[in-house]
């Protein structure tokens, strides 16, 4: 991991950070195994350099951007965000990244572009989870955002954490972070962003549509069908005797993002 310099951001929370050790050893990244400890053990095989992101679809300037150029030409900020996993645990992570909106503006989406669709690298030779006889997901991992969500100032592409480039298990070299949504929306190791007119298919929604919606906004009032979302455990807090804390609407970012969903029935569009 190489050091990255980044400016502070007023969007950062001042809550206590989850330790670097926990942030980099407790991961969901099924391309490298389904146990939380698998990604840290197995993700070393992913070759993150050279790396390009293909941007295509309904844009005026489709292009392929190399990760080094992208980092060099972006104003990096440190964004300390809460991260709430759909499984009922949470962390506070100091990301380094830049607003996704900056990149979107560069490629000049057409008026017909309503959604951004993202894809993770699809490399069976480097990702043991993709070689499994029983695939746990329909690879490659895919995610999507509505264009206004993608343009929201809280939405970032992260290239680092704790002041250094991303470890592979956290989605190197570049990943999405949308702090008011469940963690699975934060697609890792992005190789392609397409601008499209229709709501794109997403990996978890395809796997279990009744459990994982397209929006996946953190919402304590809408339970996952198999567990409550009313509370969460903050990783690294209290060890064995961790106390659950109440989950906040939009993961505590309601003031900034609730307006995006005014008039929508969030029970229906979960």
């Amino acid at each position: 991991a190489a050091p990255l310099s980044a400016s502070k951001s007023s969007f950062s929370t001042d809550e206590k950070l989850t330790s670097r050790e926990d942030v980099t050893s407790y991961n969901n990244y099924y391309e490298f195994g389904v146990d939380k400890s698998d990604p840290a053990e197995n993700a070393g095989t992913l070759k993150t350099s050279p790396w390009t992101i293909k941007i295509d679809g309904l844009v005026g300037k489709p292009q392929e951007i190399g990760i080094e150029d992208l980092i060099k030409s972006s104003a990096l900020e440190e964004r300390i965000y809460r991260m709430r996993c759909v499984e009922g645990w949470s962390m506070v992570i100091p990301w380094v990244g830049f607003p996704l909106a900056d990149l979107v503006k560069r490629v000049e989406p057409l008026g017909s572009a309503k959604y951004a669709a993202f894809e993770t690298a699809n490399r069976p030779s480097e990702m043991p989870g993709l070689r499994s006889i029983f695939p746990v997901l329909d690879w490659p991992y895919r995610e999507g955002l509505r264009l206004d969500e993608a343009m929201h100032p809280l939405t970032i592409l992260a290239v680092g954490l704790y002041g250094e480039t991303l470890p592979n298990q956290n989605g190197a070299p570049i990943r999405l972070v949308v702090p008011w949504k469940y963690g699975f929306k934060g697609i890792k190791s992005i190789t392609r962003i397409s601008f499209v007119e229709k709501q794109p298919e997403t990996a978890w929604n395809k796997q279990a549509p009744n459990e994982y919606g397209f929006y996946a906004n953190v919402n304590p009032h809408v339970d996952h069908p198999r567990w409550s979302q009313a509370t969460e455990r903050r990783i690294g807090e209290g060890g064995l005797f961790v106390k659950r804390r109440p989950t906040l609407m939009f993961n505590g970012y309601a003031e900034q993002v609730a307006g995006l969903y005014s008039g929508m029935d969030l029970r229906k569009f979960y």
Partner: peptide
Amino acid sequence: QGINDRLGADPMRYL
């Protein structure tokens, strides 16, 4: 291991 905080990041869940 749990008492000595050696069950990883989410020790309660691990146990």
